[in-house]
Amino acid sequence: MFLTVIVVLAASFISVIAAYMAVAEKDLLTATVYMALLGVFYTLIYYVLMAPDVALAYIPVSSALLPLTLIVVLKKTERYEK
């Protein structure tokens, strides 16, 4: 039980930091990595909230498919935000 509470507290804290860094970062490649990090901690929270189905659907989308698509788009357009 204590472990669960600590996991939720830490994951929500890190998710806020990751969301802020993803929005504030000027280098969009780093912002994409922060977004994937947010996805990993959201998956932890999904599991603690007893939603294994959603965690299974969310982990490939947030940590593999979306970052890959975004990195390809960054390669084809521009990497730095002005």
Partner: peptide
């Protein structure tokens, strides 16, 4: 879930 896991193979 299975479909998005399968797409990881292509990625």
């Amino acid at each position: 879930q299975a479909g998005s896991v399968f797409a990881v193979i292509v990625a």
